[in-house]
């Protein structure tokens, strides 16, 4: 009986304290998101500034316009953008196919040295990819895939080791019951049919996650792209091309153009993420259910 008398009071106290703590948390979150958003807003505003092209001490432009975007269009930027887009697209497709096939094979097939292979790839993965930079440059140069022909060269570099990124999707495939495969086998399905018609539809988040990561990696790559294009503007991607605008002799005339370029680079990535956000989160955590 005592409880029924006391409980409303206690309930009120709880509600109030929850309200207070929620307010505090929200205020903190708002502050953090403002801090986080400032650079993006800054870049966006700067990209519409027309009165001058150098860095200034204020954020809101005095004269608004699309001049910077127009001059972007007239520079090498479209070429770089196309290069980046081709690389990222081809890589997204090829790498996804390779990774999914690899994961399926490692998850479902039992063959000699399977464990050894997985272990070998794990160890290999410990070495930073940058270590191979010099030798990769040499090899690609001898095949003729540097400078003006950097696009196929870079695609080759990104795709080459993609099979090793099988962990997340293999982990996810392991969680799908094997009895599904077996049932399909009994009905006469081939391995490929099983992958295509049963496994993939069940693992949409993982497929999308793989596509997204495969698209993103080359989209923002700088180090390899810089070496392999080696100062040849026909083979540059956006990151390398725009980096040159930050040189001392160019920054005074190209700064706002740089900001405009940054905005345009962010557009497809933002759209991709907005559309596929739901799957992305599922994908990142999905593979972690069973390792």
């Amino acid at each position: 009986m005592n409880n029924t008398v006391k409980s409303p009071k206690r309930h009120m106290g709880l509600a109030r304290s929850r309200a207070i703590s929620n307010t505090v948390i929200h205020i903190v979150l708002v502050i953090i998101s403002i801090i986080w958003l400032i650079p993006f807003v800054f870049i966006l505003l700067q990209s519409f500034r027309c009165e001058s092209a150098y860095q200034v001490g204020y954020v809101v432009p005095q004269q608004w316009g699309f001049d910077n975007y127009v001059s972007l269009w007239n520079s090498n930027f479209p070429k770089w953008y196309l290069n980046t887009f081709i690389i990222a697209l081809v890589n997204a497709v090829a790498q996804t196919v390779i990774v999914l096939c690899m994961s399926y094979a490692l998850s479902r097939f039992r063959f000699k040295l399977r464990k050894a292979l997985m272990r070998f790839m794990l160890v290999l993965g410990f070495f930073p990819g940058m270590l191979t930079m010099i030798i990769l440059y040499r090899v690609l140069k001898d095949i003729g895939l540097t400078q003006a022909h950097a696009v196929p060269g870079l695609i080759l570099v990104y795709i080459a080791s993609s099979g090793m990124g099988y962990y997340v999707s293999k982990g996810f495939f392991d969680t799908l019951p094997k009895s599904l495969d077996e049932a399909a086998r009994v009905d006469g399905a081939t391995r490929f049919q099983i992958l295509r018609k049963i496994i993939l539809p069940l693992s949409k988040p993982i497929v999308i996650y793989t596509i997204l990561t495969a698209f993103m990696a080359p989209w923002g790559d700088f180090v390899f792209a810089r070496y392999i294009s080696f100062e040849n503007s026909a083979g540059m991607n956006v990151a390398v091309g725009m980096y040159n605008w930050l040189n001392l002799d160019q920054i005074t005339t190209k700064y706002t153009m740089f900001c405009a370029g940054g905005v345009i680079v962010a557009v497809p990535v933002t759209i991709l993420f907005l559309c596929l956000q739901k799957y992305y989160v599922e994908g990142v955590t999905g593979g972690a259910v069973k390792g």
Binding site: F230, E231, N232, S233, N244, N247, L248, D249, Q250
Partner: peptide
């Protein structure tokens, strides 16, 4: 090709 005079040396040596 536009290559900054500050970078040309490093690039050539590479």
């Amino acid at each position: 090709e536009p290559v900054s005079e500050a970078d040309a040396g490093t690039n050539m040596v590479t």
